[in-house]
Nucleic acid binder design. Structure first.
Length: 152
DNA sequence: GCCAACGTTGGC
DNA sequence: GCCAACGTTGGC
Protein backbone atom coordinates (compact mmCIF):
# COMPACT_ATOMS: atom_id res chain seq x y z
CA UNK A 1 0.00 0.00 0.00
CA UNK A 2 1.24 3.47 -0.88
CA UNK A 3 0.63 6.95 0.51
CA UNK A 4 -0.13 10.14 -1.40
CA UNK A 5 -0.93 13.80 -1.01
CA UNK A 6 -3.49 15.37 -3.34
CA UNK A 7 -4.23 19.06 -3.70
CA UNK A 8 -7.52 20.70 -4.53
CA UNK A 9 -8.90 24.19 -4.25
CA UNK A 10 -11.68 24.11 -1.64
CA UNK A 11 -13.70 26.65 -3.63
CA UNK A 12 -13.82 24.13 -6.48
CA UNK A 13 -13.75 20.79 -4.67
CA UNK A 14 -12.94 20.64 -0.97
CA UNK A 15 -13.12 18.05 1.79
CA UNK A 16 -16.74 18.97 2.53
CA UNK A 17 -17.72 18.18 -1.05
CA UNK A 18 -16.15 14.77 -0.63
CA UNK A 19 -18.02 14.24 2.63
CA UNK A 20 -21.27 14.90 0.76
CA UNK A 21 -20.39 12.63 -2.12
CA UNK A 22 -18.55 9.90 -0.14
CA UNK A 23 -16.86 8.78 -3.38
CA UNK A 24 -15.80 11.12 -6.17
CA UNK A 25 -13.79 11.14 -9.35
CA UNK A 26 -10.54 13.03 -8.95
CA UNK A 27 -10.50 14.68 -12.35
CA UNK A 28 -8.90 17.62 -14.10
CA UNK A 29 -5.26 16.63 -13.66
CA UNK A 30 -3.51 18.01 -16.74
CA UNK A 31 0.11 17.64 -15.80
CA UNK A 32 2.08 14.64 -16.98
CA UNK A 33 4.08 14.08 -13.82
CA UNK A 34 0.93 14.16 -11.71
CA UNK A 35 -0.88 11.94 -14.21
CA UNK A 36 1.88 9.36 -13.99
CA UNK A 37 1.41 9.25 -10.23
CA UNK A 38 -2.35 8.81 -10.71
CA UNK A 39 -1.61 5.78 -12.87
CA UNK A 40 0.51 4.28 -10.09
CA UNK A 41 -2.22 4.53 -7.48
CA UNK A 42 -3.79 1.32 -6.30
CA UNK A 43 -7.09 0.59 -4.69
CA UNK A 44 -6.72 0.91 -0.93
CA UNK A 45 -3.89 3.45 -1.03
CA UNK A 46 -4.35 6.32 1.41
CA UNK A 47 -4.04 10.01 0.57
CA UNK A 48 -4.04 13.29 2.41
CA UNK A 49 -6.57 15.83 1.17
CA UNK A 50 -4.78 19.17 0.83
CA UNK A 51 -6.55 22.50 0.40
CA UNK A 52 -4.64 24.84 -1.90
CA UNK A 53 -5.10 28.43 -3.00
CA UNK A 54 -7.11 29.38 0.09
CA UNK A 55 -6.84 31.22 3.36
CA UNK A 56 -4.94 28.50 5.22
CA UNK A 57 -3.41 26.05 2.74
CA UNK A 58 -2.73 22.67 4.30
CA UNK A 59 -3.88 19.14 5.03
CA UNK A 60 -7.49 18.85 6.10
CA UNK A 61 -8.39 15.21 5.80
CA UNK A 62 -7.83 11.68 4.70
CA UNK A 63 -9.18 9.64 1.81
CA UNK A 64 -8.72 6.26 0.22
CA UNK A 65 -8.25 5.33 -3.41
CA UNK A 66 -11.51 3.56 -4.29
CA UNK A 67 -10.89 2.90 -7.97
CA UNK A 68 -7.62 2.76 -9.85
CA UNK A 69 -6.81 4.99 -12.79
CA UNK A 70 -9.20 5.18 -15.73
CA UNK A 71 -9.67 7.74 -18.51
CA UNK A 72 -10.77 11.10 -17.15
CA UNK A 73 -14.10 11.66 -18.95
CA UNK A 74 -13.77 15.44 -18.84
CA UNK A 75 -11.03 15.35 -21.47
CA UNK A 76 -13.60 14.30 -24.10
CA UNK A 77 -16.33 16.78 -23.16
CA UNK A 78 -16.16 19.88 -25.39
CA UNK A 79 -18.32 21.76 -22.93
CA UNK A 80 -15.99 21.07 -20.06
CA UNK A 81 -13.28 23.33 -18.75
CA UNK A 82 -10.83 20.42 -18.87
CA UNK A 83 -11.65 19.41 -22.45
CA UNK A 84 -8.53 18.37 -24.35
CA UNK A 85 -9.17 18.25 -28.12
CA UNK A 86 -5.80 16.62 -28.68
CA UNK A 87 -6.41 13.61 -26.50
CA UNK A 88 -6.79 10.53 -28.74
CA UNK A 89 -9.97 8.53 -28.07
CA UNK A 90 -8.11 5.25 -28.53
CA UNK A 91 -5.32 6.28 -26.17
CA UNK A 92 -6.67 8.80 -23.66
CA UNK A 93 -4.08 11.21 -22.45
CA UNK A 94 -5.51 11.97 -19.00
CA UNK A 95 -6.31 9.74 -16.07
CA UNK A 96 -8.57 10.06 -13.06
CA UNK A 97 -9.10 7.93 -9.97
CA UNK A 98 -12.02 7.53 -7.61
CA UNK A 99 -11.39 8.63 -4.04
CA UNK A 100 -13.43 7.77 -0.98
CA UNK A 101 -13.81 9.93 2.11
CA UNK A 102 -12.16 8.55 5.24
CA UNK A 103 -11.71 11.34 7.78
CA UNK A 104 -11.80 15.09 8.26
CA UNK A 105 -9.35 16.40 10.82
CA UNK A 106 -10.54 18.86 13.45
CA UNK A 107 -8.04 21.44 12.22
CA UNK A 108 -5.74 22.20 9.31
CA UNK A 109 -2.11 21.10 9.35
CA UNK A 110 -0.91 24.19 7.55
CA UNK A 111 1.74 24.45 4.91
CA UNK A 112 3.59 26.85 7.20
CA UNK A 113 3.72 24.11 9.86
CA UNK A 114 4.70 21.44 7.37
CA UNK A 115 7.63 23.56 6.24
CA UNK A 116 9.10 23.48 9.74
CA UNK A 117 9.36 19.69 9.88
CA UNK A 118 12.83 18.35 9.08
CA UNK A 119 11.36 14.94 8.16
CA UNK A 120 9.54 16.56 5.24
CA UNK A 121 12.49 18.38 3.71
CA UNK A 122 12.42 16.10 0.68
CA UNK A 123 8.68 16.30 0.10
CA UNK A 124 7.87 18.13 -3.15
CA UNK A 125 5.13 20.09 -1.40
CA UNK A 126 7.52 22.12 0.72
CA UNK A 127 10.22 22.62 -1.88
CA UNK A 128 10.65 26.00 -3.43
CA UNK A 129 8.52 26.73 -6.44
CA UNK A 130 6.87 23.34 -6.51
CA UNK A 131 3.43 23.25 -8.06
CA UNK A 132 2.91 19.53 -8.35
CA UNK A 133 -0.72 18.88 -7.54
CA UNK A 134 -0.29 15.36 -6.25
CA UNK A 135 2.71 13.44 -5.03
CA UNK A 136 3.84 10.29 -3.28
CA UNK A 137 4.50 10.40 0.47
CA UNK A 138 6.91 7.99 2.12
CA UNK A 139 5.79 5.91 5.07
CA UNK A 140 7.99 7.94 7.42
CA UNK A 141 6.61 11.23 6.10
CA UNK A 142 3.09 9.86 6.36
CA UNK A 143 3.47 8.86 10.01
CA UNK A 144 4.90 12.24 10.96
CA UNK A 145 2.09 14.13 9.25
CA UNK A 146 -0.68 11.83 10.41
CA UNK A 147 0.35 12.15 14.06
CA UNK A 148 0.24 15.94 13.80
CA UNK A 149 -3.10 15.93 11.96
CA UNK A 150 -4.79 13.79 14.55
CA UNK A 151 -3.46 16.00 17.32
CA UNK A 152 -4.55 19.22 15.57
C1' DG B 1 15.60 21.23 -30.90
C1' DC B 2 15.77 25.95 -29.10
C1' DC B 3 13.57 29.31 -26.69
C1' DA B 4 10.29 33.31 -26.29
C1' DA B 5 5.69 33.94 -25.29
C1' DC B 6 1.99 32.60 -22.91
C1' DG B 7 -1.02 30.39 -19.44
C1' DT B 8 -1.53 28.35 -14.94
C1' DT B 9 -0.60 27.34 -10.17
C1' DG B 10 -0.77 28.64 -5.73
C1' DG B 11 1.48 31.10 -1.72
C1' DC B 12 1.22 35.32 0.22
C1' DG C 1 -5.07 40.62 -6.37
C1' DC C 2 -0.14 40.18 -7.14
C1' DC C 3 3.41 37.84 -9.05
C1' DA C 4 7.21 34.17 -8.99
C1' DA C 5 7.83 29.78 -10.63
C1' DC C 6 7.12 26.61 -13.81
C1' DG C 7 4.92 23.84 -17.74
C1' DT C 8 3.40 24.06 -22.46
C1' DT C 9 3.08 25.76 -27.07
C1' DG C 10 4.54 26.91 -31.42
C1' DG C 11 7.54 29.62 -34.69
C1' DC C 12 11.76 29.16 -36.59
Amino acid sequence: MAYWLMKSEPSVFGIDHLIDRKVALWDGVRNYQARNFLRQMQKGDLAFFYHSNCEVPGIVGLMRIAKEGYPDPTQFDPEHKYFDPKSPADNPRWTGVDVEFVEKFSGTLSLADLKTLPELAELALVRKGNRLSLMPVSEEQWQVMLALCQRA
